[in-house]
């Protein structure tokens, strides 16, 4: 799956669920947290969406702003996961170490 398709699907999920009629104003770099787009419940719903749509399991230690705080960051994170990038190359995850939650 190419990154444009991922971006489009993530953007549609955010727009449909959290922005109602204001989706056109959303930039792919907007911070979900700082711009008040998603709260913690929204992040949980995003994680569920990523699992259902892309078959990705988001590990506890991956639930960070580095991975999930904007459409661009989610796209990059998903691309790494879908391309089988090793855990050590995903922010928040150190290969061989357990999660810190």
């Amino acid at each position: 799956m190419n990154t444009d398709t991922i971006t489009q699907q993530v953007r549609s999920f955010i727009a449909d669920n959290y922005l109602l009629r204001h989706a056109e104003q959303l930039k792919n770099t907007d911070s979900f947290l700082d711009d008040g787009i998603l709260d913690s419940t929204g992040i949980l719903q995003l994680i569920t969406f990523l699992g259902e749509r892309f078959g990705v399991t988001v590990e506890d230690e991956e639930v960070t702003t580095e991975n999930l705080d904007s459409i661009d960051k989610v796209t990059a994170y998903l691309s790494r996961k879908l391309n089988g990038v090793s855990k050590g190359q995903i922010p928040g995850v150190q290969e061989g170490l357990g999660g810190s939650l």
């Binding site: 947290l33 913690s40 992040i43 949980l44 506890d60 230690e61 639930v63 960070t64 702003t65 580095e66 999930l68 705080d69 928040g92 810190s100 939650l101």
Partner: peptide, 14 residues
Amino acid sequence: LPNLLDANRYSIFS
């Protein structure tokens, strides 16, 4: 909640 001090984690519950 998880420990939020040592990484930019979200306030998601367990």
